[in-house]
Write a protein that binds this DNA or RNA. Structure first.
Length: 783
DNA sequence: GGACAGACAATTTTT
DNA sequence: TTGTCTGTCC
């Protein structure tokens, strides 16, 4: 019997062996969080406190769920079949599939990803003749998802004005459309599952009794609805074991609510709060930097990382004149790291926004250094894949109008926009799917549409007896997609991806995870029938308990077909962005994407006011604190070596911006920093931070005078900067919003001259750019 | 139906 | 600067 507790530190040990009571584990970066979570599960099972059946462990990403599953089976020989380990969406999907009738869904319900949802919304609005200028579909999508994540149905939303009333009305119509088409969007998966449990006490009791242990990873990232769902599962005899780090909460913009940690603590009367502060990743100077930086945040649960690793190397800081020069320096340093024996994949370059990668990529290409960029299109998001999936979905669910509209004329088969509109109109009129409405469309449009209907019907019939990979292969050909991309000039890659889809289907079938291990199902009772003794009666249906062998189709008539399983898999897991995966390459990614990863050497680049912290964060609630947490995440990715860099000027959106260094430099312990370029004190140069520069005002506007400063060797103050600084003495700054009595509102884009000759270039909202003599023009600073 | 020009916006992102 | 979307023309 393996000793699971060996090599755990006292806090980890305490966390792993807690009694089954509500617990909150505050796990700092690199403190062995995942290890604790996994060991806890293994320990519970090993000690006989739990069987795999009684475990529910939830994560945010499929990657995390997979890691948990594989590390767990490496730790103990466990039958993972009965375990519920997965993402919030994956688990909710699973529960809804098992109880689709109670959830008022068709057995073949399909999942709309974000892009599908948007096209469904656009289609809805078009049908209702809504002005999409006045009500942008994207805004409606945001409105709907936001409402759902607050647990609000249309009737629950308080609409205060006509505009919002319209949104609510559209929200309602959208929900009806989804219901008719048998599709659910991402937040709907959660909300529907939440409501299923909320409105169905026996079912809720069943799952509460079953899941003795509910373990939550990255708890700080949960949104309101996810927390509500967890609370629904928490009953008398079970408990939530939550692991998270409030200092690493960086997803507020997508609804994550750090407050859930405090709420959990209070609402569940959490007595078991354990802090994991021993860090096993980074050297001392790096941790000191992280600790001191994050101490600037006001609302924290409180935590300080420590290490036994020793101070290690200082944090290196570099100031570049331009973004190009910054990239050049980074690449030189990377080359040196590689030459001293570091694997390329142990080096990461982090940036705040994706647009920053281009310059670095260029420089890496020129230097001939392999690299990998994270982010971008994922496999199941590619258009050819989505087309193929749309055909497959139509086979499975003819009511899926989103898929219908997507492929009815792709590849082109002479069905124009007008025909499609006629079908949509008829569908509305007869309250049926577009596919079913074809019979009502007359004339030539009707016949070409009928041909399409015949094609789909033929596909459905032909694939009845086929295996899943055969089905996919058949559909790719019969749909005409294969021919289309064959003849397309740039179609080879797409063709290969379609072949890859067939392989993915084969892999999916061989893993055979779909739907077979669903532990409880609601099965309607035939009139007059009574529930078998091992089944629990529940109104006019029964909850089939775990005693039933759900892998036996005879006992489990509702098992998902491989196709249905594959389609949900495709929606719930968009797959890797497979760019240059596998080979030893330098890793390029946003700071967000780096969360959870670690590297021997890390470059945090573009550390400039306006970029990092990002200027938009100034207007967001708690925006600056979130940016600081982001910086904290970035710093704590580094194991041995950390580089921080910034540039005086940067090409962004086709224009050169002049930035000053990030305030975060002032929040770091200065004795851990080693400046590779001379540190220029604040205020000693144009662009130096002046004390009265308030947050959000001290990033600098654009100028097109890039050529003057383009010498990459120059890092010292330039004459033009000095010139601008004299003008700045007048009290104005570049980027400052101003008001002019004649021209109205504007922003200062350049300053030159000094004293009585000082002039400012102002870009007015209504009157374009103008040079104004400050001594003459009455410019008012706007706050 | 497809090619092309012009407008427009451009943090962060998983499911 | 660059990618995406929309409208126009053949």
């Amino acid at each position: 019997m393996p000793d699971l507790l060996a090599n755990l530190n006292p806090e980890q040990h305490a966390a792993v062996t807690l009694p089954n009571e509500p617990a909150l584990i505050l796990a700092g970066a690199g403190s062995g969080k995942t290890r604790v979570l996994i060991t806890r599960i293994a320990w519970l099972i090993q000690q006989g406190y739990a069987s795999p059946m009684t475990i529910l462990a939830v994560t945010f990403t499929n990657k995390a769920a997979r890691e948990m599953m594989s590390r767990l089976s490496a730790l103990l020989p466990i039958d993972t079949r009965g375990m519920w380990i997965g993402t919030f969406h994956g688990l909710c999907n699973r529960m809804l599939r098992a109880h689709y009738r109670d959830a008022a869904l068709p057995s073949t319900f399909q999942i709309l990803d974000t892009a599908d949802q948007l096209s469904a919304i656009k289609r809805l609005m078009k049908g209702l003749n809504i002005d999409d200028e006045k009500y942008p579909p994207k805004n409606l999508q945001y409105f709907i998802n936001n409402a759902k994540e607050q647990g609000l149905r249309p009737k629950d939303v308080d609409a205060t004005d006509n505009f919002n009333r319209k949104f609510v009305e559209l929200y309602e119509a959208y929900d009806q459309q989804c219901q008719r088409e048998g599709v659910v969007d991402f937040p709907e998966l959660l909300l529907r599952c939440y409501e299923l449990l909320a409105h169905n006490p026996p079912l809720r009791a069943h799952y509460q009794a079953r899941f003795k242990h509910i373990l939550v990873d990255e708890f700080q990232d949960t949104n309101k609805l996810q927390y509500a769902w967890l609370k629904m599962l928490a009953g008398e005899s079970n408990a939530i074991f939550a692991v998270g780090d409030d200092d690493q909460s960086i997803y507020a913009f997508r609804g994550a609510n750090v407050g859930n940690m405090r709420d959990f603590e209070n609402e569940f009367n959490v007595r078991n709060l354990i802090k994991l502060e021993q860090n096993y990743r980074s050297h001392g100077h790096i941790l000191d930097a992280a600790n001191q930086l994050i101490a600037n945040n006001a609302r924290r649960l409180g935590k300080n990382l420590r290490t036994d690793a020793g101070h290690g190397e200082p944090v290196r800081v570099y100031e570049a004149a331009t973004d190009t020069q910054e990239a050049g320096w980074i690449v030189e340093e990377i080359r040196a790291l590689i030459n001293t024996g570091h694997a390329r994949s142990e080096v990461a370059v982090l940036y705040r926004s994706n647009a920053q990668s281009r310059t670095i990529e260029h420089t890496l290409v020129n230097a001939g250094i392999p690299y990998r960029v994270y982010g971008g299109l994922r496999f199941f998001e590619r258009q050819e894949i989505k087309h193929a999936l749309a055909y497959l979905r139509l086979i499975d669910n003819p009511n899926d109008d989103t898929s219908f509209a997507r492929v009815v004329n792709f590849p082109t088969r002479g069905i124009g926009a007008r025909s499609i509109e006629q079908a949509a109109d008829a569908a509305r009129q007869y309250n049926c799917s577009m596919a079913a409405a074809i019979v009502y469309v007359a004339g030539k449009a009707g016949s070409s549409l009928s041909a399409f209907a015949t094609l789909i019907a033929k596909m459905r019939a032909e694939t009845q007896q086929m295996s899943l990979p055969e089905t996919v292969e058949y559909v790719v050909r019969a749909s005409g997609l294969a021919d289309f991309y064959q003849n397309e000039r740039e179609g080879q890659d797409r063709l290969e991806n379609l072949q890859e889809l067939v392989n993915a289907a084969a892999a999916f079938v061989s893993e055979a995870g779909y739907g077979l291990d669903t532990p409880a199902r609601s099965i309607p009772l035939r009139p007059g029938a009574t529930a078998p003794p091992e089944l629990e009666a529940q109104g006019d249906s029964v909850v089939v308990l775990d005693a039933v062998d759900v892998t036996d189709p005879a006992q489990n008539p509702d098992t998902m077909t491989p196709l249905a399983g594959f389609l949900s898999h495709a929606s719930l897991e968009a797959g890797d962005n497979q760019a240059q995966a596998g080979q030893d390459a330098v890793q390029l990614m946003t700071v967000h994407a780096a969360k959870g990863l670690e590297f021997t050497a890390v470059f945090i680049t573009g550390l400039e006011e306006g970029l990092f912290p990002h200027e938009n964060s100034a207007i967001e609630a708690d925006g600056l604190e979130e940016e600081r947490r982001l910086m904290y995440v970035a710093i704590t990715r580094a194991k041995e070596r950390l580089y921080l860099s910034f540039a005086q000027s940067r090409m962004l959106h086709g224009q050169t911006r002049y930035n000053i260094r990030s305030r975060f430099f002032d929040e770091l312990p200065q004795d851990t920093l080693k400046w590779l370029t001379p540190k220029v004190e604040a205020g000693s140069r144009w662009g130096g931070r002046s004390d009265n520069a308030g947050y959000g005002r001290d990033w600098f506007g654009r100028s097109d005078r890039q050529s003057e400063y383009s010498d990459p060797a120059v890092t010292a103050p330039l004459p033009a900067f000095a010139n601008a600084q004299r003008a700045a003495e007048s009290g104005f700054r570049i980027g400052q919003p101003v008001f002019h009595t004649k021209f109205g509102e504007g922003t200062i884009t350049a300053l030159e001259g000094g004293g009585p000759d000082a002039r400012a270039q102002v870009k007015f909202k209504r009157h374009g750019e103008k040079w104004l003599a400050l001594a003459v023009a009455k410019l008012q600073a706007v706050e």
